[in-house]
């Protein structure tokens, strides 16, 4: 997975790069508009993480450039502007998703993974992770080919963990992913535990591995195989 991070804030850019760089991903970065435009002109990426307010230019122009040249790179806009207009303009222009700052890196990774999955969609919209199979269209889960009944939240959480496999995901990030950011997350911490307990139980009972581990009381980790 090849990713371009266009972000002028060095601290954020470095964190994203560090979080995304791994066994299956290569990251490149662009600190301003000119570098970003040069890079998208020369290379193709599976996904471009694009900040809108850049020095010397507007991120939306990069989206326009990509669409004009019929480049099919996935585009995820990250912006501090939560204005609906920006969001709609971005999506209208052909961006795949929009994430408002601040966000958790795990949320960003799960969104990028979803975009890349959609881009490389080839007939069967199936995600296979070892013995776990996920039908992204029907939103069903199988273990060793046998279907398991997952609730909506459990299904969403499983996808989230697989996208962030090998990473510790904080309880805050999980709560915000499941309940949205306009609900007070602290109220929901206890319920994260029960959702995760259910997922583990269902996977193990169906003969799968127990992938999810608690991490120092701060979060959970989906252990990479």
């Amino acid at each position: 997975m090849k990713i371009l991070i266009v972000e002028d804030e060095a601290g954020l850019r470095d964190s994203i790069e560090a979080y995304f760089t791994g066994a299956d991903s290569v990251c490149e970065t662009a600190p301003d508009f000119a570098v970003a435009l040069t890079k998208v002109g020369m290379y193709r990426y599976d996904c471009i993480i694009l900040d809108l307010s850049l020095p010397h230019g507007n991120g939306l122009d990069i989206v326009k450039y990509l669409k004009k040249n019929q480049h099919n790179d996935g585009i995820l806009i990250i912006s501090a502007k939560n204005s609906l207009d920006d969001r709609l303009t971005g999506l209208d222009l052909g961006a795949d998703d929009y994430l408002t700052k601040p966000f958790h890196l795990s949320e960003l990774k799960s969104r990028v993974a979803a975009i890349v999955r959609r881009k490389t969609f080839n007939g069967n919209n199936m995600l296979q992770y070892n013995e776990i199979g996920i039908d992204l269209t029907a939103k069903t889960v199988t273990v060793h080919g046998y279907p398991i009944k997952f609730t909506r939240k459990e299904y969403s959480l499983l996808l989230y963990f697989i996208a962030n496999k090998g990473k510790v995901v904080s309880k805050n990030a999980i709560a915000e992913h499941l309940w949205g950011d306009n609900i007070d997350v602290a109220d929901n911490f206890d319920f994260i535990y029960s959702h995760i307990k259910n997922i583990r139980k269902k996977l193990v009972e169906a003969g799968g591995n127990d992938y999810i581990q608690a991490a120092y009381g701060m979060g959970y980790k989906f252990a990479g195989a």
Binding site: E9, L12, S15, P102, F103, G219
Partner: peptide, 15 residues
């Protein structure tokens, strides 16, 4: 929002 997102991402990385 910008410093908050930096702190957030650093926390995620620290983890």
């Amino acid at each position: 929002m910008t410093p908050v997102s930096v702190i957030n991402s650093k926390l995620d990385t620290l983890l």
